[in-house]
């Protein structure tokens, strides 16, 4: 790692003023950022830890909205969201491994927007709102491609508001060495319609499978997608799976998610 200063403020205001400095970078759980720093793929002058800020932690339910503060760990979401939004809690409880879940945070995952991360699928499929220190961004506008989001320099994710669906499920087909999804699908059914978000598959990161959404909106059953096909154009291809394989997985995992959501 290149050398950098490290500060751990206890309030959001202190963190934001530290982040205003040139080349300062926020760090939350660090479970992706620290390996990145070890490979010298980033060279911040200062890391600003968000883990000591009480106002950035916690899970609460108000009416039909589940709000998770930005620096809440996957382990806490897995426990505390279990009643209000079981599909989301289940997703959080399957990220990485127990040690990663003890430190990794929802805000960190969404700010990084890894094309194979789990949380972006949940946020997009739920039509969540990403709350930052300056504004609220709908998930449909937030994800802008590989490791790219609507966040500005120095802007941090302070929370995420999830509308609670009638039914939902997250189906993850795991790449066993990395424990990231090879492809994964989050399906959420609302009174207003069905949303299907796919991670791990596209070269542009998380996306909505609109054809699948339309079919499931008319008939929320696994059969509804059986006649559809997903275009492999623009899908990732590597030693673990071809573009065609990933495209096929989108359909298969969507059907499985619907079957599981229907119980």
């Amino acid at each position: 790692m290149y050398a950098f200063d490290f500060v751990k403020p206890s309030t959001l205001d202190e963190a934001l003023s530290a982040l205003a400095e040139d080349e300062a970078q926020a760090i939350s759980g660090g479970q992706t950022l620290i390996p990145t720093l070890k490979q010298r793929l980033a060279m911040p002058s200062k890391l600003v830890s968000l883990t000591g800020i009480a106002e950035l932690k916690g899970v609460k339910t108000e009416g039909n909205t589940l709000t998770i503060a930005g620096a809440t760990t996957h382990a806490v979401v897995a426990k505390e969201a279990a009643e209000a939004y079981p599909a989301l809690a289940s997703l959080a409880g399957r990220i990485g491994d127990p040690s990663v879940r003890a430190l990794g945070t929802i805000g960190g995952s969404l700010a990084n927007n890894d094309p194979s991360a789990c949380y972006p699928a949940a946020a997009l499929a739920s039509g969540a709102t990403i709350v930052t220190n300056t504004r609220e961004i709908p998930a449909d506008d937030y994800f802008q491609g590989l490791f790219t989001t609507a966040l500005d320099e120095g802007e941090i994710v302070t929370g995420v508001k999830f509308p609670i669906p009638e039914k939902a499920h997250y189906q993850k087909f795991i790449q066993p060495a990395s424990r990231f999804p090879l492809t994964a699908v989050f399906v959420a059914k609302y009174s207003s319609g069905v949303r299907v978000a796919v991670t791990g598959a596209s070269e542009d990161g998380v996306f909505r499978w609109s054809e699948g959404e339309e079919a499931l909106g008319a008939n929320f059953s696994p059969d509804a997608v059986s006649g559809l096909s997903v275009d492999p154009d623009g899908m990732m291809a590597d030693m673990h799976g071809t573009a065609e394989y990933r495209a096929h997985l989108v359909k298969v995992l969507t059907a499985r998610a619907v079957a599981a959501a229907n119980g």
């Binding site: 490290f6 751990k8 760090i27 660090g30 479970q31 390996p35 040690s99 990663v100 003890a102 430190l103």
Partner: peptide, 12 residues
């Protein structure tokens, strides 16, 4: 909490 100590900064 169980963590991987090579993936945590001492100052944190």
């Amino acid at each position: 909490r169980q963590v991987k100590s090579c993936n945590v900064f001492a100052m944190d």
